[in-house]
Amino acid sequence: MKLSVGAVAEPGSTRANKTGTWRTFRPVFNADLCVGCGICSQFCPEGIIHEKNDKYATDYDYCKGCGICAAECPKGAIKMVLEVK
């Protein structure tokens, strides 16, 4: 490992660590039920639930499967299903 001057780490470099491999349950987003409130995005510890055309979806490269999004979604638009690998 090469040390940088002052041992400074580059911003956002934890992206190299794909935490999606930790997951046991996968959140599945139902766009038909999603009303675009963004509550799932506010509460996601990974900060990876993003809006696209007023609907929300997650990034499975990093999702650890905690299930907070599914628990907090007021419309029941997110379901946790067992990950099959």
Partner: peptide, 23 residues
Amino acid sequence: MKLLAPGHRGCAGCGAAIAVHSI
């Protein structure tokens, strides 16, 4: 884009990470 990047080592469901996103 959030100012705390993914790939951090917080446990699944980590409250501290949620706090930092809100802050």
